[in-house]
Write a protein that binds this DNA or RNA. Structure first.
Length: 817
RNA sequence: GCGAGAGUGGCGGAACUGGUAGACGCGCCAGAUUUAGGAUCUGGUAUGCUUCGCGUGUGGGGGUUCGAGUCCCCCCUCUCGCACCA
């Protein structure tokens, strides 16, 4: 009977669901392996990216289980977030119903692919028993002073009355209603991730098995910068203006100061400024510019404010400008401008005819003869810098920091681009922030015993009037836990990145109701040995999750510093050279493919087409090829049932000829496939070598006894090695032909090397002949063989051999003159 | 602009430590089977030439080496990330 995946696959899936062979328990007698894949958002359908991601993880999990590891391989749902809420606004259906329906559909799809998850550990972040621990952690952080409330400006749609993420406010208009987006100051909850910035940066060096590009992205994201804060007095408004600079050594060359157009002091300055109208016009112009416009142009735009700042080192007054290139988001939103030594300041000074004063020279005694044509940004030696003249930049930085500090107008400091994490969302479908506002007691945390603070059900989803939670009377009004008086609940919910920060610890004890997870389980299972997911999470999720691990460690729940030993970021699945998307109409649905080719063939093709980190182009023909291969393997057993079934002992020591060659190929393959999976995760070459082994087996004419026994053994081991890739077929073959396909074949190292090799003979580096030779021959023997070759001896005739280079078991190069 | 990575047949890719370039698969060509198509099986498939052989070939140019896809320098192209970061 032909290989009927449509019948075989569902049968095994059902059996796995019933018998739970992938259920695992802590067992300290076994070596553990925690294989984790990024959990999906329940969008309703699995897509090809998931198939690829989870197929990679499944191969590693199954392989290591077969090798006797205790493998934890869980799956769950990142179930909160905006899409469900937006769907609720459209359909009126509660996000919960919507989400649980989606989870059900997607769980079925994952099961259709035959993934070896321990489904008993499944979690969903929208379950109150899950998100109560988000709340618990929030309270813990609150206790430790790691959260605070702060006003920050956010994108605000006045018609939807909600906060928009940057990508929802592109072009300055709301993605849903097209209203102009405003910047609005809102009180929000922030988490002090910057307290851990230094550790998050330094510990990247402790992650040798993370891809370099991800670490580079995180370093850049954290953006450590050593410099100084310096205060310039603004006599006109009687205020101090703090600037951040990495080049305090150039401060004697500061000829003006620039503020971001939205700097808070601008309001005060315009009150006293003769340039008030010009300032207002400039600020409005800048606010109107969209993000794209700002990014597209590097033209320097500025406006004199009419007031002056006092340089604390020179005591001189220099003009204060507004400038488009100064960003409120970085540093203090104000810079001292040194046009001689900063290219941006140089361009600005040229445009607005401001003085350019060099204060750094490359070496002592150097003079700039001509006017500068560009800024000299290199460090060097100070000139025109009062008592600091003659010092090197490095010496000056230190001395000047000391001077500033003792003078009370500055200090050396380290800043980060990483900002504290704003976790407030004016949304319904997220974890309620467990805080109560009382008129008498102020901000009161919800007592731990009252957790979880559940999302209310008496809400209306209109899409207007802000968060739907505001429509819930039962939620809004509560009693103050401290004084019992009337109080109001926090209506903001948490960023969903909070949910995904620690979910893989919840898998360890998913139903525990006394703590987020069991610390003994954690001591056994953590860290995650392999984490597979998309590179799009390189910064956000993967920084937050590293941060949370450090937090939980400091709370005493974990003993590790880093959550993930090895990280793999898999490439996208594309079609016709482009990302799959609905708008391009090139989406390939995994269900269709499973129906057409079967889950095993889809998995094999996905893994065979490319190594994990590369992009992969979906091609139906590729899946056909994978199916063809599986078919041939299946048919071999059909045609050679007796050989496959009959396990005959044979003496490996007496193997010779074809049977030895075949047996050696088997063990070479066992070694290669194991290596490819375990060390390199190059599943494409692992599959290729399985194909090679099968090609050799099927090309071998099997007639007499020993060869039959060897061929049977080879076939059975081939099926075992196919198990991680094509588990349905391998399981079925094992059962049909009565052998245990669930153990990884044992490697006989002595057979993993062939006993002959192709000796490549080169003359002056050019290949002249290839000779079959015994493994382990000496250089002299190799030379003797080469000399016997007609082609080689013809090359050598009448010439002197200057040098012989012999690479054992590979090649002989003769250098002649 | 800065940072990371990549350029190998018609295509996806292989070559792991400097040692046979193109494994394995797709596609294509030819043959077998078939009424036909599909499926299957067998063989071929980098390229040039004076074709049982010889030469050339891993984005381009140079270098190190007995030997370079692999190491070094310069250049080109592409992908990803960040981007007026003070």
């Amino acid at each position: 009977m032909a290989y009927n995946f449509a019948e075989i696959e569902p049968r095994w899936q059902k059996r796995w669901a019933e018998e739970k062979p992938y259920k695992v328990k802590r067992d300290s007698s076994k070596k553990k392996f925690y294989c984790l894949e990024m959990l999906p958002y329940p969008s309703g359908r699995i897509h090809m990216g998931h198939v690829r991601n989870y197929s990679i993880g499944d191969v590693v999990s199954r392989f290591l289980s077969m090798k006797g590891y205790n493998v934890l391989h869980p799956m769950g749902w990142d179930a909160m977030g905006m899409p469900a809420e937006n769907a609720a606004i459209k359909s009126g259906r509660h996000p919960r119903e919507h989400t649980y329906d989606h989870m059900k559909m997607m769980r079925a799809q994952l099961q259709n692919l035959g993934f070896s998850y321990d489904w008993d550990r499944e979690i969903a972040s929208c379950d109150p028993e899950y998100y109560r621990w988000n709340q618990w952690m929030f309270l813990k952080m609150m206790e430790k002073g790691l959260v605070y409330r702060h006003r920050r400006s956010v994108n605000w749609c006045p018609s939807c009355r909600t906060v928009l993420a940057n990508e929802q406010a592109e072009g300055g208009t709301c993605w849903r209603c097209d209203s102009d987006v405003e910047l609005k100051e809102l009180e929000q909850w922030f988490v002090r991730i910057t307290d851990y910035a230094e550790e998050l940066l330094n510990d990247l060096d402790e992650l040798p098995l993370w891809p370099e590009n991800v670490k580079a992205m995180q370093r850049h994201w954290i953006g450590r910068s050593e410099g100084s804060f310096v205060e310039f007095r603004l006599p006109a408004v009687d205020e101090g203006l703090e600037v951040f600079t990495t080049r305090i050594d150039t401060i004697f060359g500061a000829t003006f100061v620039c503020l971001a157009p939205n700097h808070p002091l601008v309001k005060k300055i315009r009150e006293v400024s003769p340039e008030r109208e010009a300032i207002d016009a400039f600020v409005i112009k800048m606010n109107r510019m969209s993000r794209e416009e700002r990014l597209a142009s590097t033209e320097k735009l500025g406006q004199f404010t009419g007031i002056y700042a006092v340089n604390p080192f020179t005591k001189e007054e220099i003009p204060v400008y507004l400038a488009n290139f100064v960003l409120m988001e970085y540093g203090t939103g104000a810079v001292m401008s040194v046009p001689a030594h900063d290219q941006r300041d140089f361009e600005f000074a040229k445009k607005y005819k401001l003085p350019i004063l060099p204060v750094i020279v490359p070496e002592p005694g150097f003079h700039y003869d001509n006017e500068l044509t560009e800024a000299v940004e290199a460090t060097g030696v100070l000139v025109n810098s009062g008592e600091f003249s003659g010092l090197t930049s490095d010496e000056a930085k230190q001395k000047m920091n000391e001077t500033a500090e003792s003078g009370g107008f500055g200090r050396g400091a380290v800043t980060y681009k990483l900002k504290d994490w704003g976790i407030s969302r004016q949304r319904y479908w997220g974890t309620p922030i467990p805080v109560i506002y009382c008129d008498n007691c102020g901000i009161v945390p919800v007592p731990e015993a009252d957790l979880p603070v559940k999302l209310p059900d008496d809400v209306v989803f209109t899409g207007e009037g802000g968060s739907p939670i505001l429509t819930s009377e039962s939620f809004l009004h509560t009693a103050c836990p401290k004084c019992g008086g009337n109080a109001r609940r926090e209506t903001d919910t948490m960023d969903t990145f909070m949910d995904s920060c620690w979910y893989y610890y919840r898998y360890l004890s998913p139903r525990l109701d006394t703590a987020p997870f069991d610390t003994e389980e954690a001591a056994y299972w953590t860290p995650v040995d392999l984490y597979i997911g998309g590179v799009e999470h390189a910064t956000m999720h993967l920084i937050y999750t590293r941060f949370f691990t450090k937090l939980l460690r400091d709370f005493g729940l974990l003993k590790i510093d880093e959550p993930v030993k090895k990280l793999v970021t898999q490439g996208m699945v594309i079609k016709d050279g482009r990302k799959m998307s609905k708008s391009l109409g090139n989406v390939v649905d995994p269900d269709d493919m499973i129906q057409k080719y079967g889950a095993d063939a889809v998995r094999v093709f996905m893994l065979f087409a490319s190594p994990p980190e590369k992009e992969i182009e979906w091609k139906d023909q590729g899946a056909e090829g994978a199916l063809r291969f599986l078919n041939r393997v299946w048919n071999f057993a059909e045609n050679n049932g007796e050989i496959v079934k009959t396990e005959t002992e044979f003496d490996t020591a007496t193997l010779a000829g074809k049977e030895k060659k075949l047996f050696q190929k088997l063990h070479q393959t066992i070694a290669k496939v194991g290596d490819d999976i375990e060390k390199r995760l190059h599943l494409n070459t692992a599959i290729a070598s399985l194909m090679e082994l099968f090609n050799l087996l099927s090309a071998t004419e099997i007639k007499e006894g020993v060869l039959k026994a060897v061929a049977g053994a080879v076939y059975r081991d081939l099926v075992r090695m196919l198990m991680p890739f094509a588990p349905h077929m391998a399981s079925e073959l094992g059962e049909l032909y009565g052998f245990d396909a669930s153990r990884w074949p044992e490697l006989k190292q002595e057979f993993a090397v062939a006993d002959t090799f192709t000796l490549v003979v080169q003359v002056n580096g050019k290949i002249k002949d290839k000779i079959e030779a015994e493994q382990g021959i000496s250089a002299d023997e190799a030379f003797r063989l080469a000399a016997e070759s007609e082609r080689v001896s013809a090359e050598l005739a009448g010439r002197n051999i200057v040098k012989k280079i012999y690479v054992p078991n590979r090649l002989l190069n003769l250098v002649v003159k």
